[in-house]
Simulated assay, not measured.
Amino acid sequence: MAVPKRKTSKAKTGSRKSANMKMGAPGLSICPQCHEPKLPHRVCPNCGYYDGKDVVNEN
């Protein structure tokens, strides 16, 4: 079984971890009702519609 010869330094560990922690821009979709950009699979913050139904102003 392989065993590390030396302790991995905090700088080496941090630089390795930070290479995989890049944030990307969120993917946006267009609302079919008001044609504003919104996050996919979420209620449109502008008009309140989701899947063709008015879910925010529903009573």
Rank of each mutant, 00 (worst) to 15 (best):
R42K: 07
N20M: 03
G27E: 13
P40E: 14
V43I: 04
K38N: 06
P40V: 00
K17F: 09
K7E: 00
K10N: 02
R16T: 08
K5L: 01
S9I: 02
L39Q: 14
C44I: 03
A25F: 08
I30K: 07
I30S: 14
R6S: 03
C34V: 11
R16I: 10
K7D: 00
V3G: 01
K5A: 05
C44Q: 08
L28D: 07
T8V: 11
P32R: 09
C44N: 05
C34A: 07
T13E: 03
S15C: 03
V43W: 06
S15L: 08
M1S: 14
A19S: 15
M21I: 06
T8S: 06
H41E: 10
T13G: 01
C34H: 11
M1V: 02
G24T: 03
A2H: 01
A2D: 12
S9W: 00
V43A: 05
G27R: 15
H41Q: 15
P4R: 12
E36L: 13
S9V: 01
V43T: 13
G24Y: 02
R16Q: 01
K22W: 00
L39T: 01
R16H: 10
K12M: 06
H35E: 14
R16F: 03
T13R: 14
M21S: 15
M1L: 10
K10F: 06
K22L: 10
K17T: 13
G27M: 12
P37W: 05
N20L: 07
K7H: 03
S15V: 00
G14I: 11
K17R: 11
M23P: 02
R6A: 09
K7R: 13
R6L: 06
A25E: 15
A11L: 08
P37S: 10
A25L: 08
P37T: 08
T13W: 01
G14W: 11
T8R: 13
A19F: 15
K10M: 03
Q33E: 11
T13Q: 05
T13K: 10
I30H: 04
P32Q: 09
C31H: 03
A11E: 14
K12L: 06
P37A: 05
A2K: 02
K17W: 07
H35W: 06
A19P: 08
A2L: 12
K10Y: 05
P40K: 15
V43L: 08
A11G: 06
K17N: 12
L28S: 14
E36F: 04
A19G: 07
